[in-house]
Design a protein around this nucleic acid. Sequence first.
RNA 1: GGAAAGAUGCCGGAGUGGUUGAACGGGACGGUCUCGAAAACCGUUUAUCGGCGUAAGUCGGUACGAGGGUUCGAAUCCCUCUCUUUCCGCCA
Length: 427
Amino acid sequence: MLDLKFIRENPEKVIKGLSNKNEKNRIDEVLELDKKRRAIIANSEELKSKRNQVSAQIPQLKKAGEDVSQLLAEMKHVSDKIAELDNELKQIESDLENILLFIPNIPHSSVPIGKSAEDNVEVRKWLPEGFSFEFENGFKPLDHIELGKKLNILDFERGAKISGSGFPVYKGKGATLERALINFMLDYHLEKHGYSEIFPPFLVNRDSMKGTGQLPKMEEDMYFIDKDGLFPIPTAEVPITNLFRNEILSEKDLPIKYVGYSACFRREAGSYGKESKGFLRVHQFNKVEMVKFVKPETSYDELESLVKDAEDILQELKIPYRILMLCSGDLSFSAAKCYDIETWSPAENKWLEASSCSNFEDFQARRASIRYRNEQTKKPEFVHTLNGSGLATSRLMVSLLENYQTPEGKVIVPKVLQKYTGFNIIG
RNA sequence: GGAAAGAUGCCGGAGUGGUUGAACGGGACGGUCUCGAAAACCGUUUAUCGGCGUAAGUCGGUACGAGGGUUCGAAUCCCUCUCUUUCCGCCA
């Protein structure tokens, strides 16, 4: 959520930011409602002040044996007027909130301006030693679906039978490899990058979803368990960021760095076509997520180190990747700045998004009311929140299987995973 | 799923209609004392909204789980909801 005061004082900046994000804006409506709101507050508070004064006198007058019935009648009238104003105020505030909750974050000044994914900027690329985009002797690499079937480690058909399309089943060494990947990534972030581990609930309430910005705008993309009012999480970002909802942290506790595994559930409403085959788009996948709570002045440095933390995993796994800085038009709802990490798929012959690292500044913190006490001013201030996938296993698995396949159709297990899998080749 | 009790400030815990934003205790912070520390003593210590002010600030409103109601006036009375604890049932 954007700061109402900021909107009031910098409407042109907000309008510009929203237009760079390809968003229609309702800032005029916001300003109009805000004006009305403040007028009513002034009016109502003046009456309340009067009521408080008179109410304090009444017991004294009574004690002195005076007749207060005239006063009571008068105050009844004042109270009725207050109730009327407060009802009006409540309506306006709810209208205002309904607009504000749908207004996305605005891009940071360092974000390139652009319309769509095509305007994203490649920041850097990393290729393992000896890597080539061409396989030797014209060898045609198998894609992950063919490999999965041939090696009997993935079963999309049976997943579709038991749940529906987009619910893959991992089998045998495939299941072990998936688990190894998760454990390797968690351990690495814990040991090398100084994160603490969180194992969060996979179902959260509406307030949590609102806090991180999934709701109300993206409700159609979320699973929802109506009977209990709970949402299966689309990412561990939701429960982990909401750990401190409605809390005031100590400045000395910051930065707080959490890493957690969760399954992720996404309806992906309206996604069809070849982009959605196999692992490329699924309803349930596994992800190791990093979440940071930091002081505002450090958040852009923290974003850079967050990206590096995710990159380290890929370098250890020796999987080719590139880093994109998302342009304004491609930024997600809550993000002020975001880097995507894409890994190489030789069979698809393209880059696949495997991680997204974002700085939300105080956008989520304001929605969820996550603050820290500034030691200098002694006042509560909003923290900045960041998160990044470190990483999502499904897309990563595509790159891993395809890059590590041998001409015989086997898959070598990356060196760093071997102590987790207990085997070094599949097939 | 059934029954009961409860939800107050950083923590514990008073408070059943009118100077209670909140007694008392603890913690934390500042000060006195001390070479230093402890103890003792003194003081400070919730958040949020609006007006005025560049600001420090100042004046006022609101908030005792959440929402609604009664009343001139609600932490206190009534209703609904949420959560917590305990007991019973079920259960990985």
